[in-house]
Structure formats: C-alpha cells, structure tokens
Computed example of a mutant assay.
Amino acid sequence: MRTWLIKLRKENMYTQQEVASKVHIDRAYYAQIENGTRNPSIFVAKQIADFFHIHPSVFFTEHISDPFQTALLSSPVVLAHCGTDLRYTWVFNAPTRYSENSLLGKRDDELDSSEGTVALMDMKRKVIKEGKPLRRTIRFPLPEGSIIYDIFAQPIYDEEGNITGAATCATKLS
C-alpha cells in the first residue's frame, strides 16, 4: 500500500479518477498503483510525479538496495530535494520523527516552527535565487534538546539549465 500517495492525493483534494485523467491513465491502473498491487512504468511514475511535484524515484525506493543506500541507512545524514516552492519532492533517511513519505509535498514551515526551520528555508531560498551552493550549521530546538546539523545545499537544474529547486545534505552533529 502506498499510503504516502493516497495521503498526497487526498491532501490535494483529488479523486483517483481526477489524477488518472490528468496523467492519462486508466483509473483502475492508478488504483492499483496506489494500493501497491502494481508498480508504474518509469514513464507513468514520471507523469504522476510531475502532477504531484515529487521525484519519480519515490515509487521505486523500496526496491533499491545498493551500496549507497546501505551505507547511508541509519546514518546521521539526511538527503532531500525540494522544488522552487520549497516543498519536498524527495527525501532519503528522514529524521526519526518523520517518515520520508510524510514529508513529500510539504514545506519545512508546515512541519515545524522554529528558528532552525526559518534558517533552513532561508538557506534554500538563497540557493535557488542565487544559483550557488551554500553550507551552514543550523540548530533546531526540540522539546528534548537541540539538534545541530551541518547542511550543504545546492541548486537543482533541469535539462535546459533552469533552476528547479534545491538539493540538501544534512549531517547531524549533535
């Protein structure tokens, strides 16, 4: 069951029929993709991902097992992509209080309200606006104490060279 896809569809107030129609597939096929009985082709995954403004790899992440994933799984490193609207389009190894899929389509300020959140969003905005990588140390206050991350952010470009968002690599320091 792809509960993250169902949640994303419902949060955007679409029916299965509306999504299927917008991405030019049969509603029954879309329903099978949502309930996990069928995997979409790469082409269909890209169509659905474009519709929801997420990265198509989220459909296949659970099937990937390579040295990259093995090395980073449970490490203090969080990798993510966001669009120019700062909404997450892909997340790997999310902080333990979140699941990767619960972050998709959300902005940081929709998940938390703190000085760290503001600093992270400002950092991503600057990377997208100026088209230059940045590195910062950001403290995120939590009820159980602060967490400090060393964050590297860089712009993401499309095939034509336009900035489409930002990629971040956050390493937990404490």
Rank of each mutant, 00 (worst) to 15 (best):
T3H: 13
W4V: 05
R9V: 14
R9L: 11
N12I: 00
M13D: 14
E18C: 00
K22Y: 10
D26T: 07
R27W: 01
A28F: 09
A31E: 01
Q32H: 08
I33V: 08
E34P: 04
E34I: 09
G36R: 01
T37S: 15
T37K: 02
R38F: 02
V44N: 08
V44I: 15
A45E: 01
Q47G: 05
H55S: 14
S57D: 15
V58M: 04
H63M: 13
S65H: 12
S65E: 12
L72A: 01
S75T: 04
P76V: 07
C82P: 00
L86E: 05
L86R: 02
W90D: 01
T96N: 03
R97S: 13
G105K: 00
G105V: 06
R107F: 12
D109F: 14
E110W: 10
D112H: 01
E115L: 11
E115D: 09
T117M: 03
V118C: 03
L120F: 13
V127M: 09
I128E: 15
E130R: 13
E130Q: 15
G131M: 08
G131I: 12
R135T: 13
T137V: 13
P141R: 05
P143R: 06
Y149V: 12
I151Q: 05
Q154R: 12
I156G: 04
I156E: 07
Y157R: 11
Y157S: 05
Y157Q: 10
E160R: 12
I163L: 11
C169Q: 12
